[in-house]
Amino acid sequence: MTDAPFAPLDTSVDRDTALDVLRAATAGADDGELFFEQRRSEALVYDDGRLKTASYDASTGFGLRAVRGEVAGYAHSTEISESALRRAAETARLAVGDGGGTLADAPQATNQQLYTDNDPIAGASFPVKLETLKEVDAFLRDLDSRVVQVSASLAASLQEIEILRPDGHSVRDVRPMSRLNISVIVEQNGRRESGSAGGGGRVGLDGLIDRADWQAKA
């Protein structure tokens, strides 16, 4: 997570508005912050020679927290707007009461970029992803005539988060994730055995859809 100029994921909320609402909610509190999140994910499952599932999901939201002593107030919404922020602030403010607390110092950012912030979903077109899964299926069936079922899946997601503190300090992180999974069932003389392999991480799809990579897993 790295230091960054605050730039809300939804441009209808500017920095000054978000900061004013947060400060009002945490005045006299010991701690508190605004947490914004945006997430997109895609998954394709190719099973038994056909595309079984293709899904895409997108969501946004925020959480507002105010802490006074042992009491914490928290409110969240899937709508990022000024009105939603103000409603959340009223709820979180209940934990602060008459105040009297001393705001904690902001945590230090690592300032180290440990992985790419590129969107893995956009790393390859839908036809390329589908064709890769088809090739996995065909490759496994060609390896051994005893293969009776193959399932291969590609999944990718991108999570963007941003945290704003009452003192104006903000940090941001972009978290990509991608994975390829393969499973196979073989049968001989009425007996079935299964095996699976997979891999991925906070990387793009390029390496996962490379033939050398998925053939090794197969």
Rank of each mutant, 00 (worst) to 15 (best):
D98S: 15
R39N: 12
L154Q: 01
D10L: 05
D142V: 02
A29L: 12
P176V: 12
Q108E: 15
R23K: 14
D47K: 08
Q112R: 15
P8F: 07
S125L: 07
A156E: 00
Y56A: 15
D14T: 06
A95V: 04
D31A: 13
N111T: 03
L34A: 06
S59R: 13
F139S: 01
A95H: 10
S178Q: 06
L143G: 04
T91Q: 15
V150L: 07
L133M: 01
E187K: 10
E33Y: 15
D210M: 09
S178T: 09
A4K: 07
Q112E: 10
R202K: 11
L154K: 03
A138W: 01
D98G: 04
L143H: 01
G63A: 14
A197N: 12
R65A: 11
R86G: 08
S125N: 04
E90S: 09
P166G: 13
P120C: 07
D213F: 12
F126K: 15
V147Y: 02
I182M: 00
P120S: 06
G204Q: 07
Q149Y: 03
E90Y: 00
Y115E: 08
V128N: 01
V45T: 13
E131R: 03
A124Y: 00
S170I: 11
L85W: 00
A156N: 00
P127Q: 09
D117F: 02
R146Q: 08
A138C: 01
A54W: 04
K129N: 02
V150N: 10
R211S: 14
E131L: 01
Q38D: 14
D3H: 05
S153M: 02
V13D: 03
L51Q: 04
A66E: 09
S55H: 03
L164H: 02
D167K: 09
R141F: 01
R23L: 04
G32M: 08
V71N: 11
D144K: 05
